[in-house]
């Protein structure tokens, strides 16, 4: 048996056009290099610089004309002062922890809201399902910012919700709802729901009906089947959805800025303040780098868990 020879026809493209395959791989990497890695390196460099009252408001500037001495003075001027500043001021730690708290609670709320929706969608007649998927994505047809503004008109003191509660005589005074953590949660869960529903739905609709029948056959009532079979099999979708939501929520800026109060700042708002209000680019950059490093941890964890479950499913 000449096994290696028999293997080659399996990937005829790779054998015939190796350079074109490389080109296909090169395009996204070039894109990522130009628009992600390069800007990130600039941010890293900024974070190691000193604040200066200048335009742009930092030093040093790398000067190629100065030759080797220029490079030496460039590295000599780099400092970790900005990172020390992050840990010395409770403002940064506080807003970072606040962001994690909001992101964690929002993610749990999102799972609780998305799981029944996705489950219902996956159990719906096959012919309805495409329409249901479109319905979940329908909010994207309106600009994100406008949808958040809409929540202001709903939640404000003379807003729709208070009008309704007053009309139904559930309350006799308008309830302050805007500018609270609650409003932020409402805004976040509303905005991110499709990102949680779709990955869970994608996993649930792939679960073979015969597995649920087998569970029933073996003595499992429906609700128990959900916890013993459906939920564990939906786990990869839950993990993917949680990751897709958790990370951008930690850095969320617009929702807490428009719906939250000014006392509790999320890390995105702190970053914005440092960058635009205080014009402290180096500290803002240090904050951005620290945030990114912190967020790599959950990404790696979920990725590993997902690889395990994916391996088990094949």
């Amino acid at each position: 048996m000449s096994a290696p020879a028999a293997d080659t026809p399996a990937r005829p493209l790779a054998a015939a056009h190796p350079w074109s395959n490389w080109l296909i791989i090169l395009v996204p990497y070039l894109w990522l290099f130009l628009f992600l890695l390069l800007p990130f390196l600039i941010v890293v460099k900024l974070s190691l610089s000193q604040t200066a009252v200048a335009q742009p408001p930092y030093s040093p500037v790398f000067d190629l004309a100065a030759g080797f001495a220029g490079i030496r003075s460039f590295f000599g001027a780099l400092s970790l002062d900005n990172y020390r500043a992050l840990f010395s001021d409770s403002l940064y730690i506080g807003s970072f922890l606040k962001s994690l708290e909001i992101a964690l609670i929002s993610t749990l709320l999102l799972i609780a809201a998305a799981l029944p929706v996705a489950y219902g969608m996956s159990r719906a007649p096959r012919s309805w399902q495409p329409a249901l998927v479109i319905a979940v994505m329908l909010p994207f047809w309106t600009a994100f910012l406008i949808r958040i503004y809409a929540w202001i008109t709903i939640l404000q003191r003379e807003g729709l919700l208070n009008d309704l509660l007053l009309a139904l005589r559930i309350v006799d005074q308008p309830v302050p709802m805007l500018a609270s953590d609650g409003a932020v949660y409402v805004g976040i869960v509303y905005s991110y729901l499709p990102f949680m529903v779709l990955p869970i739905y994608a996993v649930l609709c792939k679960i073979d009906d015969s597995l649920l029948e087998a569970a029933a056959d073996l003595g499992c009532p429906r609700w128990k089947t959900f916890w013993l079979v459906t939920f564990p099999l939906a786990w990869p979708g839950l993990a993917a959805g949680a990751l897709i939501c958790f990370i951008p929520i930690v850095g969320e800026f617009i929702i807490p800025d428009l719906l939250g109060n000014s006392r509790t700042q999320m890390i995105g708002q702190t970053l914005w303040t440092e960058f635009f209000a205080n014009r402290d680019w180096p500290v803002a950059s240090a904050l951005a780098v620290a945030l990114l490093c912190a967020l790599l941890i959950p990404i790696v964890i979920v990725q590993r868990m997902q690889n395990e479950t994916l391996g088990a499913r094949r």
């Binding site: 029948e213 087998a214 056959d217 073996l218 003595g219 499992c220 009532p221 479950t309 088990a312 499913r313």
Partner: peptide, 20 residues
């Protein structure tokens, strides 16, 4: 009687083993 209360068990064509 619902399937989970019947003293009857089935082997499915696809076997329907729980992958997890």
């Amino acid at each position: 009687l619902p399937p989970y209360l019947r003293p009857v068990n089935m082997m499915f064509q696809s076997y329907a083993l729980f992958p997890h």
